[in-house]
Computed example of a mutant assay.
Amino acid sequence: MARTILALSPSGAHFSFTASLGQQYRFQLNWLTTYRYFVVTVTDGTGKRLTAGRGLHVGSNIMSGCRGFAGTLKIEGTTPTPSNLGIDNQLVWEH
């Protein structure tokens, strides 16, 4: 199984980025201050929403149950926050 690390950097509480993981995907991350975690929305290259409101928790596959997505997408390391995202943790696509 191949591993690809998606480059992330602290970008504040609300941001989006695109990544090519077999095809193009757009990720939106929003920090929930009350609960202290990010929620993720993922759309494909056509704009079709694949998942929304998934918590970005260490070890949890945010693409679980998404049809047509090959592999897993998990955050590894420490719990992500707006100030440590991509520093103390990394988003890993295993395929």
Rank of each mutant, 00 (worst) to 15 (best):
G59I: 06
A52R: 10
T72K: 02
K48G: 05
L50W: 02
G86Q: 06
E94N: 10
D88G: 03
A52L: 01
F15N: 07
G71A: 02
S11I: 13
L85W: 05
G77T: 03
A19C: 07
Y35G: 01
G53N: 14
S64C: 12
L8G: 13
G45W: 11
Q90K: 09
H14P: 00
T18P: 13
T79F: 11
A52Y: 08
I5V: 06
T4G: 12
G53H: 02
K48M: 00
A19T: 11
R3N: 15
M63R: 05
L6D: 02
L8P: 11
S9N: 15
W31D: 11
F17W: 07
G22M: 14
N89C: 05
P10N: 06
V40G: 02
T78Y: 04
F15H: 13
T46D: 14
Y35S: 14
G59V: 08
I5P: 00
A70L: 05
K74T: 08
M63K: 12
G86N: 08
H95Y: 14
H95C: 07
R3E: 15
L8F: 14
H14E: 08
A19L: 07
Q24F: 02
Q24I: 08
L21R: 01
W93S: 00
G59C: 09
W93Y: 03
F27P: 15
Y25V: 06
R3C: 05
H57L: 12
